[in-house]
Amino acid sequence: MFDMKNLGRLKKLDEHAPDVMKAFWAFDKAAFAEGALSAREKQLIAVAVALTTQCPYCIELHNKAAREAGASDAQLSEAAMVAAAIRAGGAVTHATHLFAG
């Protein structure tokens, strides 16, 4: 199912939902623009989120963008471990629901 070529089909969304997609692309561009966080920091966050959502498209796209923004293997590795800790933490904290209060 996963094939980067599928992203070419985004044009269909642009075509059939132009107002919404224009708003989405503008939002996406604004979200990743330099600000209080650098472009590299934002891409490292995106990589971590992509790993937690397990979206292969996002992982590939944001890994590439993070590297282009100067992210190192060490930074990407730490972002991945933060993502792993958040996933594990969610399981641990939700485990509290297993016990009667």
Rank of each mutant, 00 (worst) to 15 (best):
A33C: 02
G101Q: 05
N63E: 13
S77T: 13
G101A: 09
A50K: 01
G8C: 12
H94I: 04
F2M: 10
V47R: 05
C58Y: 01
E41N: 11
A79F: 02
A33Y: 06
F2Q: 11
T53H: 02
A79C: 01
A69H: 07
L10N: 14
K64C: 02
A46S: 10
L76I: 10
R40P: 07
D19K: 08
T96Q: 14
L44A: 10
A80Y: 04
I86Q: 04
D14L: 15
V47N: 00
I86K: 05
A91N: 09
D19Q: 13
A23S: 12
R87E: 11
P56W: 08
A71S: 11
H62T: 01
L7S: 08
A84M: 09
A31C: 08
P56G: 01
H94G: 05
A95T: 12
A84G: 12
A26N: 14
E15S: 12
P18C: 00
L37E: 06
S77A: 14
K42V: 09
K64T: 03
R67L: 07
E41C: 06
D3M: 06
V92T: 15
K22V: 14
E60R: 15
D28W: 01
E34F: 00
F99P: 00
L13Y: 10
S38G: 05
R9L: 15
Q43R: 07
A46Q: 00
L10I: 10
S38H: 11
L7W: 12
A91Q: 07
A48F: 01
A95R: 08
I45M: 11
S38I: 03
P56N: 05
A30P: 07
S72F: 09
E15C: 11
E60Y: 10
K11Y: 10
A69Q: 05
H97L: 15
K12T: 13
A30L: 07
R9N: 15
L10P: 09
E68T: 02
A71Q: 05
A100D: 08
H94K: 14
S72Y: 04
K12L: 15
A65T: 06
E78M: 05
Q43T: 13
L51R: 11
I86Y: 02
A30C: 02
L98M: 13
T52A: 12
S72C: 13
L13T: 06
S77Y: 13
W25I: 01
D19T: 12
A100I: 04
A23F: 06
I86C: 02
A33F: 06
A46N: 00
K22A: 12
Y57K: 11
A39N: 14
P56E: 03
N6Q: 14
